[in-house]
Simulated assay, not measured.
Amino acid sequence: MIRLEHISKTYSLAGKTVHALNDVSLQIHQGEVFGIIGRSGAGKSTLIRMLNLLEQPDSGQVWVQDQDITRFSGAQLRAFRQGVGMVFQHFNLLHSRTVLDNVCFPLRLAGIDRSQRQQRALEVLELVGLKDHANKYPRQLSGGQQQRVGIARALANRPQLLLCDEATSALDPETTQSILRLLREINQELGLTIVLITHGMDVIRSVCDRVAVIDAGKIVECGEVLDVFLHPHHPTTQSLLSESGVNADDWHALAEGVPGSVMRLSVRGVATTEPLISRITSQLGLNVSILQGAIGRIKTEPYGQLVVAVEGNEQAKAGLDALLTELNVQFEVLRP
């Protein structure tokens, strides 16, 4: 659905040239939830604003539905933007207008008559669970409810694409999870393509199908969330995971003085329910010590990752690779 080709963007700041984006190429598929993660100043906000041309690239092309939108201007660009919803970090609601009026606002700009826009506004308010609050004002709502109004407003024009610019950063953890659940439901029910930016790997893990990691204006890692989460390659990705409580190198201290080789075992889907350690010990007679481990879900798919020390005779160890392959376990040797 979306293809960015060699996008670059620079700014002049205090007499210096800042490369916000540097030769970025990226593809986002129809109907997926795509996450862009990076630290402050990495370029993620500039990148997401390229998708509706709130930022114009210095060079490169942005393709949406086989149209090069960097060529759009005037009425053509305004018509395109009506098909792109955007949800902001700080809600950006009109506080002097009711919830209903806030959601009607983009419909009024699109020239929809009053009765039709009110009907549509009530439909999307029901979708986000706020139909009973239609006549309230934003100040009468909680932060999570205000963000739901922002989402309803973004959906009012039946967009093909929903952009979320740090949509949960101003919310507490419980409210964040409720908003992420809502985004998952919207994606599933409407088949809507969602692109969100965040600095939190937990947000990516909860809602996204694929993720791009951006650092200093460049995409340094990109792929399915589960693959990136279980097998991070770039130091920036590893650091972001560590900050969210997933440190791939914690096993080193525990491995000191523990005999045997050290391996990292990764499983996904139904393989997480297999009695992995007991199979290894009973079938091969190996001693297995767990040095580090995590079991959880990424979006809806269960996963598990263990770092283990394996001790035993060489003949038994020789059969381990075959058994792990049979059990659909990915593995890597961390210490021979």
Rank of each mutant, 00 (worst) to 15 (best):
T176F: 00
T175P: 02
I186Y: 00
A212F: 12
I214A: 03
A167L: 12
V207K: 00
R205D: 06
V228M: 09
L171V: 12
V203N: 07
N187M: 01
V213Y: 06
T176E: 04
T176H: 00
C222R: 06
I219Q: 03
V220E: 09
L182P: 03
A216S: 15
Q188K: 14
P173H: 13
G217H: 04
E221D: 09
S169D: 09
M201N: 10
I186T: 02
A212H: 09
G223V: 13
A212Q: 09
I219H: 02
D215Q: 14
I194M: 11
K218R: 15
C208R: 01
I186E: 00
V213E: 02
L190A: 05
D172S: 11
D172Q: 10
A167F: 11
D202M: 12
G217C: 08
A212T: 14
G191L: 08
V195P: 03
E185R: 14
D209N: 15
T193E: 06
I179V: 15
N187W: 02
Q177R: 14
L230T: 11
V211Y: 02
R184W: 02
T176Q: 08
G200Y: 13
L171W: 09
D227S: 15
L171N: 06
I194W: 11
V195S: 05
E189Q: 15
R205H: 06
T176S: 10
E221S: 06
A212S: 14
R210D: 11
L190F: 12
V195Q: 03
D172M: 08
I186A: 00
V207I: 15
T175K: 01
G191K: 06
V195R: 00
E224V: 05
E221Y: 10
G217R: 00
T176D: 03
E189W: 05
E221Q: 14
E185T: 14
N187G: 04
E174G: 05
C208S: 14
V203P: 07
E221F: 10
I214R: 00
T176C: 04
H199Y: 10
A170I: 13
E221G: 09
R205S: 09
R205M: 10
I194E: 10
R210N: 13
T198E: 06
V203K: 01
V213G: 03
E189R: 15
V203S: 03
T175W: 04
P173A: 13
A170F: 11
